[in-house]
Write a protein that binds this DNA or RNA. Structure first.
Lengths: 126, 126, 126, 126
DNA sequence: GTGGTCTAGACCACG
DNA sequence: GTGGTCTAGACCACT
């Protein structure tokens, strides 16, 4: 089940889109898997169908899903590109953080220890 | 001079506040340095004074500056706390990036190399 | 066998109709050739018979096929008119593209080289 | 004034977006030119503001405009990339038309004459 | 005043 | 049943 946080400053449609993108790119939802229908998800989350519709439109624009009129929305089969983009984004983010921390006086050892911390944290959950 | 980017999606007041905070926490502006007056900065940037006022309010709320009625706004002298907060924030961000990248299949070596890249990048500019 | 692309944004009935029209106008299917029955094609493509029915209706309306009650659907023998229409359509499309490209600053040489490219591409496949 | 065609099968928001994109890429609207406000254009065209809003969202996603909260929407200054994309699109379209026409029996001379026709048509209007 | 988000409800096209 | 478009009107954030 999706988790929506009304106190989050991000719009609802973006939260929903991000959650599905995460599931798609992580392989939790395989290619060609059908997403819940706009109307069904709307009642499940107690959210207006238009908002769900918008979330799905965003996902289609991002290339995460494809939509077929009269049939439904489905995960795009080839996710390798999506994963690459996501990794590149994370890479840039990590570099930026490290760079900024150094400028604020963090030592090289600090940074590497944080990175190590993130690594073990990521492996544990696997 | 401050740099404002109208094409940035962030609100103007936030851009201005972030720039001042960056200068304060990096030591570019020392403690008790006086900030430009609301009106003066407004005409310099060709921006509504209300926007500047709000930026300063945000900075005061963040503890980056203090304001003295009738005199002006000044950088908070003790920046160590601010720097600590900022570093903690960067640390969490770096850990999150590393963690997420691992989950997407990045290797331990990748992460450490990226961190190293950020370190050298940060040192170069010093 | 017909090729259906569920990720295509065009409706299924249109994809099917276009494929048959293409085969008819190119001579791949000769005049009076019988098309597969609605029910048969429906099971072959795992598609709702209504969709096939609609595709055939579109083709009949376009003049590409004729239907005989109780016998089936057949390619219209005289394809010269269809081919003329199609060519006229392509001609207009090509002129429009060239015209628009010129307005955007493309040179006369560019256009002619593109046209030449299309020509060789079309001849190669023959 | 924009021209909206209710008999066009394309959605209204797409018609509006296309018209503005055309004006931007052709230089009719220079960089940083402000577009009419969402509400104003809505009353001018007697169209719901949401529809205009969506058209503008599409344009922003395409990189044709940028939007500033509280100020308005503006044409993206650097249009060179947009023009390149548009030209590449026209190029592919022209090649496809020529290729298809050849396959339907058009002669090389036909194609070149059509291309020439498009060229002169484009130049005349300049 | 500006743009952005969300809700509610209608209508159409597709399968 | 499905997705897609449009209208009407509300509320919020920003300048």
């Amino acid at each position: 089940m999706l988790h929506i946080d009304y106190r989050d400053s991000r719009p609802l449609y973006e939260q929903i889109a991000d959650e599905f993108e995460h599931m798609a790119v992580c392989g939790v939802m395989a290619g060609d898997t059908q997403l819940p229908s706009v109307r069904q998800l709307a009642v499940d989350l107690s959210i207006n169908p238009n908002t769900i519709q918008r979330a799905y439109a965003v996902l289609e624009q991002r290339g995460v899903i494809y939509s077929v009129k009269g049939r439904g929305n489905f995960i795009t089969p080839d996710c390798s590109q999506l994963r690459q983009n996501k990794l590149e984004q994370l890479r840039q983010q990590l570099i930026d953080s490290a760079c900024a921390a150094i400028k604020l006086g963090a030592t090289k050892e600090h940074i590497l220890s944080w990175a190590q911390q993130g690594i073990t944290q990521g492996e544990v959950i696997l």
